[in-house]
C-alpha cells in the first residue's frame, strides 16, 4: 500500500468486488461429515454408471432385463424341458425357481465383474484426484444392486399377477438374504478389484471361475436332484445357500431351508461370507497404497 492508487485494492478486501464477489468462491457455511460426503459420492458414482451403462442404446435399461431373461429361456429349454423332464418332484415350480436363481446370480456375476474393473478402469481418476479408493468398488456394486432391485421388482410384480409365488411371512427373509448376497459380492469385489490392478490375468480367471460357480450353485437344477450328502455339501457354498433359501422364501414350501440341510454347519456359508468381506477389506487396504503408481 505504498501509493494512493492502491487504495482500490484495500477496499476490495473489505467489500468483495470483482472475482471475490462470485458466489462460487464464497466459503461453505458448514462442511458435511465424512460419512455423508462418502455416501453422496457413492450415490453419484453409482447413479452415473447406471445411467451410462445403457446410454446410447435404443432399449436402454431394458437390456439389463433382457439378459437374465435370455439366460433363463436358454437354461429352461435345455434343462427343464429336455434333460430334467419328469425327474423332479416340484417340476411345475421349477421355471420360477430358475428365474429367481438367475436374477440373483446375474446380480452376483454383474457386481463382481464390475467391481473387478472398478479400480483399474478408473486409472485417470485415481492418478489425478484423491478420495478413498474403496468408494469406487462400493459404487460399482451399488450400481449392480440398482439393476437387481429394478429387475426383482418387475419380476416380482409379474409373478404376483400369475400366482407364481407362495408369498408369506417367510418371504421377509429375502431381505437378510439379499444383504448376505451383497456382502459376499462386495467382499469378493474388493479382493478382485485390488488384485486386478496388479494381475490383469484375473479378468479371465474370474470369468472361468464364475462359470464353474454357476454350475456349482444349483441354479439350473433343484437341490432335490442331489443325494442328501451332496445337498449338505452343496449348501455350504454361500451362493447356493442364498439362492436355495430365496427359493424357499418365495417360491415353494416344498424346498427345505438350508438350516434343515446344514444343521449346525449353517455357520460355514455365513463364515465364508463374513470372511470374504474381511479378506476383501484387508487385501484392499494393503494393496490400495500403490494403486496410484500401478495405474
Amino acid at each position: 500500500m505504498t501509493t494512493a492508487l492502491n487504495e482500490g485494492d484495500s477496499r476490495q478486501t473489505a467489500v468483495p468486488t470483482g472475482i471475490a464477489a462470485s458466489p462460487l468462491l464464497a466459503p461453505w457455511a458448514e462442511s458435511p461429515s465424512t460419512v455423508r460426503s462418502y455416501l453422496s459420492l457413492i450415490r453419484e458414482l453409482a447413479v452415473t454408471s447406471f445411467k451410462l451403462k445403457y446410454a446410447g442404446s435404443v432399449l436402454g435399461y431394458i437390456w439389463s432385463l433382457i439378459k437374465p431373461l435370455m439366460l433363463f429361456g436358454m437354461m429352461y429349454l435345455i434343462f427343464a424341458a429336455f434333460l430334467l423332464k419328469g425327474r423332479t418332484s416340484s417340476a411345475e415350480n421349477f421355471p420360477v425357481e430358475l428365474l429367481v436363481a438367475i436374477v440373483l446370480w446375474t446380480f452376483f456375476a454383474d457386481a463382481t465383474t464390475t467391481a473387478l474393473a472398478s479400480i483399474a478402469g478408473n486409472g485417470d481418476m485415481i492418478r489425478k484426484a484423491y478420495f478413498p479408493r474403496w468408494i469406487l468398488v462400493v459404487a460399482s456394486t451399488m450400481s449392480a444392486a440398482m439393476t437387481l432391485i429394478v429387475n426383482a421388482v418387475l419380476i416380482f410384480v409379474l409373478g404376483l399377477l400369475f400366482h407364481w409365488y407362495q408369498v408369506g411371512w417367510q418371504s421377509l427373509l429375502l431381505i437378510p438374504l439379499l444383504l448376505e448376497l451383497y456382502v459376499l459380492s462386495l467382499g469378493i469385489g474388493m479382493l478382485l478389484a485390488a488384485l486386478y490392478v496388479y494381475y490383469r490375468d484375473l479378468g479371465h480367471i474370474w470369468e472361468i471361475l464364475l462359470q464353474l460357480l454357476f454350475y456349482l450353485s444349483a441354479i439350473i437344477f433343484p437341490f432335490s436332484l442331489l443325494s442328501p450328502q451332496l445337498q449338505g455339501l452343496a449348501a455350504m457354498n454361500p451362493v447356493a445357500q442364498i439362492i436355495e433359501d430365496a427359493r424357499r422364501a418365495v417360491v415353494s414350501s416344498a424346498i427345505p431351508w438350508s438350516t434343515d440341510l446344514l444343521g449346525r454347519r449353517l455357520v460355514v456359508p455365513l463364515v465364508l461370507v463374513i470372511g470374504a468381506l474381511g479378506v476383501g477389506i484387508w487385501s484392499f487396504q494393503v494393496l490400495s497404497k500403490r494403486f496410484g503408481e500401478r495405474l
Binding site: 461453505w28 462442511s31 458435511p32 465424512t34 455423508r36 460426503s37 453422496s40 459420492l41 450415490r43 453419484e44 458414482l45 452415473t48 481418476m125 484426484a129 478420495f131
Partner: peptide, 12 residues
C-alpha cells in the same frame, strides 16, 4: 459428479 468427488453433498 465432480462436486461429489470434492466431498460435497447433493444439497450443497
Amino acid at each position: 459428479l465432480g462436486g461429489s468427488i470434492l466431498g460435497l453433498t447433493r444439497k450443497q
